Simulated scan of single mutants.
Amino acid sequence: MASAQPGVHALKLQPPSVSQTLRNGSNFIKWDEVRNQICLYPLSKLETELLDLTLVKDVRTGRSSKTPKEAKLRELLDVGNLVGRLENRMVTVVTASDLVNVNQLNFIATQEEEAKVWCEEVFSLSSNLLSHNLNRDHSLLKAYVKLTLQPNAEGRIPVKNIVRLFSSDRKRVENALENCKLPYGRVITLNHSFYY
């Protein structure tokens, strides 16, 4: 009688690695049909918007992406020396913190290949199992990076950002800051380079 093999499959978990294409960055146009506005990216340092990749549920391009319904907005997005069909240059990033709160961010790339590469790479990063199950040290580093990427005009971290990031219980966070002998008032700011 042959011995039975257990039904366990080995899954090799690889830490997420950001490709050189994503590190170099690309220019996208962000559009919003509800507000009927178009934004050029990258934004200035003071207007940084952050999106946690663990909230990204899908990244779409081509027929699966969202295209503007309004003809005027489609015309605005399809100007200049952009290469390829409009729908193939569209990138839709679907985010959700739960099953009810689903959002879509819509971008347009200058070339079809650029949209395809970004979709594949961002989806690969967002679906990495290790990034969804970080250890304590990586979670704290992730929080630190989030805080340092959103400084105020003087380049300092507002305490209100720390409160918003770590807890809805403001008093608890302020007590923790006070116990660490850090400033803890709501309008106080911290110099981020000093504490790293």
Rank of each mutant, 00 (worst) to 15 (best):
R164N: 15
H9N: 12
V100Y: 06
L177N: 06
V100M: 10
E174C: 13
V83L: 06
P158C: 12
A176V: 10
K171V: 14
Y196N: 08
V93K: 02
L134E: 08
A176T: 09
D52T: 06
K142S: 12
I29V: 13
E112W: 00
L105M: 14
G84R: 00
E114V: 13
S127L: 01
K72Y: 14
P6R: 04
H132I: 00
G7E: 14
L53K: 07
C39E: 02
G62W: 05
I188V: 08
P158A: 11
K57N: 12
L73F: 08
T148V: 15
S168N: 12
T189E: 03
T110R: 03
T54Q: 00
I157W: 02
V59L: 02
K45C: 05
V83A: 10
Q150V: 15
C180L: 15
L73P: 03
D32N: 10
N36D: 11
S26Y: 08
F107W: 12
L11T: 15
L140C: 08
V173S: 05
M90S: 06
E154W: 05
L22P: 07
E114T: 14
T110L: 07
E114A: 11
S131P: 00
V91K: 05
A143P: 01
E75H: 10
Y41L: 09
N36T: 10
T67F: 04
C119G: 09
Y41D: 00
H138R: 11
E87S: 15
H132T: 06
V117H: 08
V117Y: 09
V163G: 03
L11Y: 15
